[in-house]
Structures are given as structure tokens and as C-alpha cells.
């Protein structure tokens, strides 16, 4: 279970980098997801604001 040959402390090193990648990966995905969702909703809201007659 030590493909990179980190020696006796390999588990701690893998753990550190694994946890860091998980946290940053989660942060990046959350940021991008939120960004695209807000973009989509804003585009929809702007489109419906441009055609006020459609709402009535």
C-alpha cells in the first residue's frame, strides 16, 4: 500500500494529501457549482424581465 515508497510514515503522508485534495476539491467543485447555478438563474431572470408582457 505504498506505491510511491514513502517508507514507514506513508499512511500519514497519504492521509495528509488525501484530506487536502478532498477539501480543496470540494471547495473548487462547490465554487464552480454555485457559480454556474447563479449564472443560470440570473440568465433566466433577466430573460423574463425583458419580456414583462409574458408574465401578465
Amino acid at each position: 500500500m505504498d506505491p510511491f515508497g514513502f517508507g514507514p510514515y506513508a499512511a500519514y503522508i497519504y492521509g495528509s494529501y488525501g484530506a487536502s485534495f478532498a477539501i480543496f476539491g470540494g471547495l473548487i467543485l462547490w465554487t464552480l457549482h454555485r457559480n454556474s447555478r447563479v449564472r443560470r438563474e440570473l440568465a433566466a431572470a433577466e430573460a423574463s424581465a425583458r419580456k414583462p408582457s409574458a408574465a401578465e
Binding site: L27, I28, T31, L32, R34, N35, V38, R39, E41, L42, A45, E46, S48, A49, P52, A55
Partner: peptide
């Protein structure tokens, strides 16, 4: 990340303003 985050926040605020305006119209 900060740039993307701030862009999201600016858009979210515009979205909120638009929605409030729409509710007012409705």
C-alpha cells in the same frame, strides 16, 4: 477561487434585485 467567488456574489446580488423587482411588479 476568490475571483470566481466574487463574480458569483455579484451575480447573486443582481439576481436578488431582479427577483425583488419582479415580485413588486407581480
Amino acid at each position: 477561487l476568490l475571483m470566481v467567488g466574487v463574480r458569483t456574489e455579484i451575480r447573486a446580488r443582481r439576481l436578488r434585485a431582479l427577483r425583488i423587482a419582479q415580485i413588486g411588479q407581480a
